[in-house]
Structures are given as C-alpha cells and as structure tokens.
Computed example of a mutant assay.
Amino acid sequence: MEGVRLRHGPVHPAPQGSGGVVTTRPVLVRSLRTAALGVVLALTMLLVPNSSVNPTDSALVRVPRAEGVDLSPDVIWILALGSDARPGQSVTRSRADAIQLVGINTRTGAATSIGVPRDSWVGIPGHGNEKITAAMYFGGPKLMAKAVGDLVGIEPDYVMVSSFWGLRHMVDAIGPITISSPVAFSDPHLRPQGFRKGRQQVGGMGALAFSRTRKALLRGDFDRSANQQRTIRAIHAKIRAKQAKPGFIEKGVLAVLTNMDAQVPPAELYRIAQAITQVRPGRITTCVVLGGIGNVGGASVVFPNRSQARRYGHDARKDATIRSC
C-alpha cells in the first residue's frame, strides 16, 4: 500500500476580530499512553459478521492520494468518525461527533490514535474558520479528511463513518461487552439507572448511553470522548476473543459489503480487517490534541495546539507510534 497524503499547508492562527469576544483558558486533556485502544468506533463494522447495521448507518470512503510523500508503506491511516446523524439523516453529511485519526502498522502490529476535539477551531478549505466537526456537514468525509490532515499533517487513506445507532447494532451483533467506568454516573434520558464505578457488562443500548452521555460528566465532552475510547477497547476485546473462529474475517468483510456503504474493493476491506485483528494491545499509543477553550461569536470552541498536533503526526507517520504526548 502506498503512502498517504501529507499536507504542508499553512497553520491558521487563533481567530482575531471574529465578530465575537474571544477568550481562552488552558484545557488539560487526559492523554492515554500505551493503553489498549483496539480499534475506533466504526472500524468494528469490518469484524461483525451478520451485522444488522443498515447501509445508512455507516460508510467507508477511500481518499485520493497525493504524490511524493514520505510515509511507510506498512502503515494504513484511517480517519474514524462517529457521526451525529439522527435516524433519517445522512451519516456522511452530518457533523462528526467523535474524531480519531488511526494508524495501523501492518508489519509490527503497532497502532496509534490521535484524538481531535470536535469543537476545534480550524480552517476548513472553502469555508473559512469553523469548528472541525462542521467539515463533514459542508463536504462529506473527504473534506473532513482534508481538515484533519491540515491540522495533524497526515491525510488518511480511508474515512470510516458510523452513526451511534450503528454502534448499538454492532454491540448487539457481537454480544454484551465489558466496559470499565472510572466513576459512577447516570443520564435521565439515555440510562436512568446509570453506570456504577468499575467493570460491568452492557448491551447495545448501554454502550450507546455510555458513549453519548456528556452533561453528567465532570469534563463534559472530554470525558465523553474518553468513554468512547473505553467502549472501543471493550468492543475490540470481544472481537479478539472471536477472531480465531474459522471464517470470522471473511464473514465480516461479507457483512460490510451487505450492510455498509463501502466504496472500496473487497480485497482492500480484507486487508483492513486483517490489520485490525493483528493489532497488539501492548504496542498501542494514543494522544489527544490539547488546546484552550474560547468563545467565538457566542459559541464555545477549542483552539487546538497546532504545533503539538503536527508533532504527533510527524512522530507517528512512519511506524504508527507516538513516543510521548
């Protein structure tokens, strides 16, 4: 597999005179070092045989490559997005609720994920400065790939998108997963009975509630993002327990062709699926792009640390490993 696109575009400064009062304060976003990431939300679709997920719930899009990049041919880069689409809305033209740029080293089994806050204030090609979450709404997965590529310095080979309802169906398809919550919390709408502190089994609806709850958490969106990663780890653990079954990957690829809007050939799907199952938990690193919270035109935004984002991309582009966050 050839290298992926590496963008060297200009770094956009924090907005000045944007029409609203701009204030900033430091935000400390927890970085998970060498934790077992597994795969990001939508990637699990590749490994869920006989899934009942509808094509409208998920999509896999290949991103055109640029020439002359200095990236390892062993690394696959996938931008995994949790779409904020509600039932009946387009999963690829709604705002991106969860944003993870994932690199998988097919030779070593290493993997890394670079998390981007959904409210990061960035330049979106053709649309000026906006929250990065809006890029998919404006121009679909490929524009989202460009926006993330401009920030991190690596544009992905693929963009995989899944709705949160797709998550619910995926978990129901593979059976209950075991999540681990650092705190007890509840949501009166999604899960009135709440979650206790520690390990517990949940089905599809429980996984959805655990991944979507925000207001009950101390750090809001940042804690919700961490819970999404905990859900991902639980799903991956379930998949790893089943991957030795004969035909598991092949059935998973067939499920994608049946239940996902997959705009890539079956051979590419099979290679991605193999790469996911070969990820070694002890060789996984994750980092989140830090920044400051501010206000633009009355809306709360995150001003990302652009030099840090580029450092992550530079560090990981050859071997899918980030040395330090």
Rank of each mutant, 00 (worst) to 15 (best):
Leu71Ile: 12
Gly126Tyr: 04
Asp172Asn: 09
Ala173Glu: 08
Ala267Met: 13
Val48Leu: 14
Gly82Trp: 00
Gly38Asn: 01
Arg271Ser: 08
Cys325Leu: 04
Leu217Val: 13
Ser90Lys: 07
Gln200Ser: 07
Ala147Lys: 08
Ala275Asn: 11
Arg214Asn: 02
Thr44Ala: 12
Cys325Val: 03
Val61His: 08
Gly126Lys: 06
Ala134His: 13
Arg212Met: 02
Asp261Gln: 11
His314Ala: 02
Gly153Asn: 05
Glu2Tyr: 04
Met170Asp: 02
Lys251Glu: 15
Gly103Val: 14
Asn50Gln: 05
Thr321Val: 04
Ile284Asp: 10
Val40Ser: 09
His236Ser: 13
Val289Tyr: 02
Val27Pro: 06
Gly247Ala: 05
Ala216Pro: 11
Pro87Ile: 04
Asn54Lys: 13
Val148Cys: 08
Val288Cys: 10
Asp221Ile: 09
Thr213Ile: 03
Ile276His: 01
Thr258Ile: 06
Gly123Phe: 02
Val301Gln: 03
Glu155Tyr: 15
Asn50Leu: 03
Lys131Glu: 12
Asn54Ala: 15
Arg280Lys: 10
Gly123Cys: 09
Val161Ser: 06
Leu143Cys: 08
Leu46Met: 10
Thr106Gln: 14
Leu101His: 10
Pro13Asp: 03
Arg214Ser: 02
Gln100Arg: 13
Asn227Arg: 01
Arg317Leu: 05
Gly166Leu: 03
Leu269Lys: 08
Val102His: 01
Gly175Glu: 01
Ile232His: 14
Asp150Arg: 10
Tyr270Ala: 10
Asp97Cys: 11
Pro73Phe: 03
Ser180Trp: 02
Ala309Ile: 00
Met170Val: 12
Val27Ala: 07
Ile78Trp: 04
Arg323Ala: 12
Arg240Leu: 04
Gly313Ser: 03
Ile179His: 00
Gly294Thr: 09
Gly282Tyr: 03
Ala320Trp: 08
Ala275Glu: 07
Thr112Asn: 07
Arg271Met: 11
Arg224Leu: 02
Glu268Trp: 15
Leu79His: 12
Arg224Phe: 01
Gly291Ala: 11
His189Glu: 00
Arg283Ala: 10
Gly298Asp: 03
Ile99Phe: 09
Ser113Glu: 14
Gly88Asn: 14
Ala85Lys: 06
Asp157Glu: 13
Ala273Ile: 09
Pro182Gly: 07
Ala244Ile: 07
Ile174Met: 09
Pro246Glu: 07
Leu143Asn: 09
Tyr312Gln: 02
Thr231Ile: 04
Gln193Met: 03
Leu47Ala: 01
Val69Glu: 08
Ala273Asn: 10
Val61Phe: 10
Thr24His: 03
Thr106Ala: 11
Val148Ser: 12
Arg219Asp: 15
Val289Arg: 01
Val116Phe: 13
Gly297Ala: 00
Leu47Asp: 01
Pro246Thr: 09
Leu81Met: 14
Ala184Asp: 06
Pro10Gly: 10
Leu143Val: 11
Leu28Tyr: 15
Gln263Met: 09
Ser163His: 03
Ile78Gly: 11
Pro176Ala: 06
Pro281Glu: 06
Asn305Trp: 12
Gly297Glu: 04
Gln100Cys: 14
Asp223Leu: 08
Val21Ala: 11
Lys251Arg: 14
Gly175Lys: 00
His12Ile: 12
Asp315Ala: 13
